[in-house]
Amino acid sequence: MNLPLLKLMLKINMKGVSNYAFGSAFYIVIMFWLYPGIADNSGALNDLLASMPDGLVSAFNIQGGFGSMEAFISGEYYGLILPILLSIFTIMVSTGLMARLVDQGSMAYLLSTPTSRRRIAMTQASVLAFGLLMILLITTAAGYLGYFWFIGDRYEFDSSRFLLMNTVALALFIAIGGISFLVSSVANDEKKALGLSGAIVFGMFGLDMLGKISENVEWLRFASLFALYQPSEIASGGGNPLLSSAILLAVGIVAFAAGIVSFSKRDLPL
């Protein structure tokens, strides 16, 4: 870690982090606010879900139904909007932290100071991890805030399942962050890095969705990290969220380490 660099990078990225964090917090509070109105009609809505094709329902992660708060939020936020939001954040920030500096040439200045490449890459990686942690912490906190404001004791809410959902989401994006960071660390061209991480991340997201729509192509999901993140299962108390988190974190750590090592060993066109 390099303190001046860490301070600067946090300052540069803080605006983006807080935009995503507050956007996410705002959305989740709105969802909690909407829930009481929906919960009163949950019977009718669950019938509607039952009438839709199973594949479609599970592809959008809404199979949890509307019976409980965490089931509702798992479908309406954690299933689709949050992963997309965090994917965009991860791809943009990881590209900005490494590939952009190499492409533009400002990396030359960082490397002309007595700091090893490894430390520079570690600092940049920690900025990405810190940003993801901040966004999810603020989102989780906003969830609790929404709960106290709008739900109280009137409706069912399993707080530990909600926390687990956030934990697996964080682990998933540490893994995805690691992969985009690795791409960004070996790229000389900012646009190529952006394109490649975008293709990988949204490709995996798409594979998971396709795999869920049809049982014939369910094997597609094995190629996707998103398969380990099933918020609706967690909401209904199923799945193995702790194992999933552990696997995702391990993938993330290996990918970050690979990014740091390959950056410190490669030729830089600066």
Partner: peptide
């Protein structure tokens, strides 16, 4: 020994790029 060497060097790149913002 690239990080130790940098203590001795001042460098002006051919194509200057500073950090944005």
């Amino acid at each position: 020994k690239h990080s130790e060497v940098q203590k001795l060097i001042g460098y002006l790149p051919g194509e200057i790029a500073f950090i944005e913002g």
